[in-house]
Design a protein around this nucleic acid. Structure first.
Lengths: 194, 194
DNA sequence: GTTATTCCGGACTATACAGTCTGGAATTAA
DNA sequence: TTAATTCCAGACTGTATAGTCCGGAATAAC
């Protein structure tokens, strides 16, 4: 009875996410978004709602990707410490382009209006998810005897979540792999407490 | 011969900085800026140039304040470790309002256009200054015998600069003093290397 | 073929905002 | 008093941008 959608909604969303990622919310104009997504303005409003709704969907899309890859990372590794090592040193080794682009959610946090409760709640939820992944990995490492039980897994999880954001901010400003590696190694040394 | 300026330029700049700090560059409209500064549009353009020039002056003003207070902090303390402790734990203990406002320069870094070389260069310079303050304090602590020489002062300086930014990002999202204190203590533990 | 839906392009609206300009009053020193 | 400068209020311009609306073509199911 009706003509079906001709474009891949997921793919269009991924394209929109890329634009928001590179430009930020305000500088991502509809023109640029439409061009990148390859659809018409009409289709965008029909499918995703307004610009802000599209942005929120892009944040969700990004979060799903990053959380999945983090879970996979810790599953793929036998030692928790290796997981964090690969995470932090991997970030340090990213390209200049990746460093400049940074993290969509960190940017979202710092460019958002302080009164924006919707984005804030979403980001808090994501932060909690990340910390949960880290905390369970650490707790497992501790019960396995791999890691010292000196520090609370929750606290360590927060510490690494904070470290990642600090490194992301640094990397965005200056893509200096050596400096990032130094920071990463010092952060990892916290896991080596006797 | 000529009528002198009737307003305090420094005070007006401080007011503008507050607005940029709370709202960010884009959301800080001229109307709000003028209201906060207590001057007319004409005076603003005569005295500070356009909005961007005012923003850059506000960044300088902020940097001068924070660098000075950091230098004073490390001068006022006999042990380097106490300096970092007061810095990080002091940040953790800030008010909810202060946490939400965050750091003007961190926000500037993450909300800026990736192609904005002027702001980027300014922020890189500031980052270098902060690291220099940290590094000399650490080197002094090491030569004093207070701190272990296990880690490079430059690397430790970068680590703490990164930590502060991570904590600032966390605090902006959720004003959780306990969590911030946990992160601070773990970061400080890096100084206790045997 | 009919009907319902989607697509696109483009026109159009409304709005917010930075920046300029004008007029006139106020303030200083010579 | 005069000249120079600063101040403010407000009008005005130009521009960028989100969002709506319309016309017409395409594509599906019935």
């Amino acid at each position: 009875m009706a003509r079906p959608k001709a474009f891949d909604e997921r793919q269009a969303l991924a394209a929109a996410m890329e634009v928001f990622w590179r430009a930020g919310y305000e500088r991502a104009s509809l023109d640029v978004l439409l061009l990148a997504m390859g659809i018409s303005k009409q289709s965008l409003y029909d499918t995703f709602g307004d610009k802000r709704a599209l942005y929120l969907k892009a944040l969700v899309y990004y979060r799903d990707q990053t959380l999945t890859s983090m879970r996979e990372l810790f599953e793929s590794v036998t030692k928790t410490r290796d997981g964090f090592s690969r995470l932090l040193l991997g970030m340090s080794a990213e390209s200049e382009e990746q460093h400049a682009r940074g993290c969509l959610l960190l940017s979202a946090n710092l460019e958002r209006d302080a009164s924006d409760r919707v984005v804030a709640a979403f980001l808090r939820d994501n932060q909690a998810s990340v910390e949960a992944i880290f905390a369970t990995a650490i707790a497992e490492g501790q019960s396995r005897g791999e890691l010292s039980k000196k520090h609370d897994p929750q606290a360590l999880a927060k510490f690494f979540a904070s470290t990642i954001q600090g490194m992301r901010a640094m990397a965005r400003l200056k893509s200096d792999r050596r400096a990032l590696r130094q920071v990463a190694k010092l952060a990892l040394s916290v896991l080596d407490a006797p």
